[in-house]
Nucleic acid binder design. Structure first.
Length: 443
RNA sequence: GCCCUCAUCGUCUAACGGUUAGGACACCGGAUUCUCAUUCCGGCAAUCGGGGUUCGAUUCCCCGUGGGGGUGCCA
């Protein structure tokens, strides 16, 4: 439960069904609910709609909870934290549904047919009070099933019962529920309740092609970003921008600022297409802006996972590698490939890079020339002095320093891109650099 | 089919009824004492169509068109 008691009667809920995936659209719905709760000082309830009771329910639930935690969307009531309106699992609320069903039977709004229980509609158009779309009217024409013939209650019924029983004040959900809201309003009214305030948020569409994002689309699952070491703050920030904006031309915003600016009527009406490239760009911005200490904390487990720390390099060495690499990264995902040669001698030599180097001159000759000179040099092995040395060295031979830098970089790292050259030399250290140059020139 | 809903650059979006229609991503070009994948500068690029209302419409209304959703004993 939250440490700070709610200062508002606003109670919102995120009510996912544990399917084994955490879809980006669901995450965005959870996020908007959470933002609104935090904006109002209200309560964010997590309710698990597990009426299907699958075999792997527990494992499926973990995907969801871990995804929410990763995004920093903490819930005030729900699984693991409890709360006064439990249980927060629909599979454990059968008794409550029974009681509410009896109320509908008593008032003549529920009846049996074909072994199922049906709800009798009123014949009047329902008015949905929607904070984003205004008043929406829709006539629910046909009676509908609320309890299947196998005895299990259907979504529309349990959803409304739980919202009543959990005193939910605002229902923030995807627009795919808008048409069905007339069913829900009818149910609220049949229970003698005023329906909650609704806010139907636009859907997230596929990057290309027709329809909304589905689990199978590239980039559709939160767990994919976890696995690829995206920063959760970046994913969350991007998700905020799908259907909402600060209206001040700023897109990268600290979450506290988003919370204070966020409001339901400010949400857009139109669906948004998902753009993986923009998300990737935003992730890069977040990675490069990370304070050195936090970058280190994020990077260390990744390097370890890739086996790059197997030789037990000194902490100072790892830190200096990360310091020169951070500003060049587009994301933590590429870090291992970007810096592997700092940690092992059997790094791969990039094939295209080799062609590039060969095309621009004789790399072996350049490396040998340099090797001969640097071997004699006994200056301090520091970035600024190495720069001085190379510039003088190149000038004496009437060449541009880049004539040496490119082949040297390739010889030392196996790549044509990387951190600043002199910083790279300094961090690797004299011994390692010279050994690699020798190996390259005598290949 | 019927019902609901939406409509500004390719994409995400901004614009009290009066703006050279702004920003971001992508793309293209240039610069940056060494690479680029960082950074900086520049460029391309939009109000779906037709009617109204108004001195004036991206903005308000209507009709089309197009998109999305719903229409299950799925959620």
């Amino acid at each position: 439960m939250s440490a700070v008691p709610p200062s508002s009667s606003v109670r919102v809920r995120f009510a996912p069904s544990p399917t084994g995936f955490f879809h980006i659209g669901s995450a965005r719905t959870a996020l908007f609910n959470w933002l609104y709760a935090r904006h109002c000082g209200g309560t964010f309830v997590l309710r698990i709609e597990d009426t299907d009771r699958q075999r792997d329910a527990e494992e499926y639930l973990q995907v969801l909870l871990e995804g929410l935690r990763w995004l920093g969307l903490d819930w005030d009531e729900g699984p693991t934290v409890g709360g006064p309106y439990g249980s927060y699992f629909q599979s454990q609320r059968g008794e409550i549904y029974g009681e509410y069903l009896q109320k509908l039977r008593d008032s003549g709004r529920a009846y049996d047919r074909d072994g199922a229980v049906w709800f009798r509609v009123s014949g009047e158009p329902a008015t949905i009070d929607d904070r984003i779309r205004g008043k929406v009217q829709r006539l629910e024409e046909k009676d509908f099933v609320i309890v299947r013939s196998d005895g299990s209650p259907v979504f529309h019924f349990v959803n409304v019962v739980d919202d009543i029983a959990m005193a939910i004040s605002h229902v923030v959900r995807g627009e795919d529920h808008l048409s069905n809201s007339s069913k829900h309003v009818e149910l609220f009214q049949a229970f003698g309740r005023t329906p909650p305030v609704y806010a139907h948020i636009p859907l997230i569409l596929k990057t290309n092609g027709p329809g909304k994002m589905s689990k199978r689309d590239s980039g559709a699952l939160i767990e994919e970003y976890q696995r690829r070491h995206y920063l959760p703050e970046a994913v969350r920030n991007y998700l905020c921008l799908l259907g909402w904006s600060s209206k001040n031309d700023r897109e990268i915003l600290p979450i506290d600022e988003i919370i204070s600016l966020f409001d339901l009527p400010a949400i857009n009406h139109n669906n948004a297409r998902f753009d993986e490239k923009k998300l990737a760009h935003m992730n890069g911005e977040y990675v490069r802006a990370l304070p050195a200490e936090e970058f280190y904390d994020h990077a260390l487990p990744i390097l370890r996972e890739e086996g790059l720390l197997a030789d037990g390099p000194a902490e100072d060495y790892v830190r200096s590698v990360l310091t020169i690499c951070q500003e060049k990264l587009r994301g933590l995902e590429e870090l291992p490939h970007f810096c592997a040669y700092f940690f092992r001698e059997n790094f791969p030599m990039d094939g295209d890079g080799r062609k590039k180097i060969l095309a621009s001159g004789d790399p072996f000759a350049r490396v040998e020339e340099f090797l001969a000179a640097i071997g004699q040099w006994n200056g301090e092995w520091a970035a600024d002095l190495l720069e001085q040395f190379l510039k003088t060295f190149a000038a004496e031979r009437d060449r541009n320093s880049s004539a040496y830098i490119h082949p040297l970089r390739y010889a030392i790292s196996g790549q044509t891109v990387g951190p600043g050259f002199y910083g790279m030399l300094a961090v690797l250290g004299r011994e390692r650099v010279l050994a690699r140059l020798v190996r390259f020139s005598s290949h």
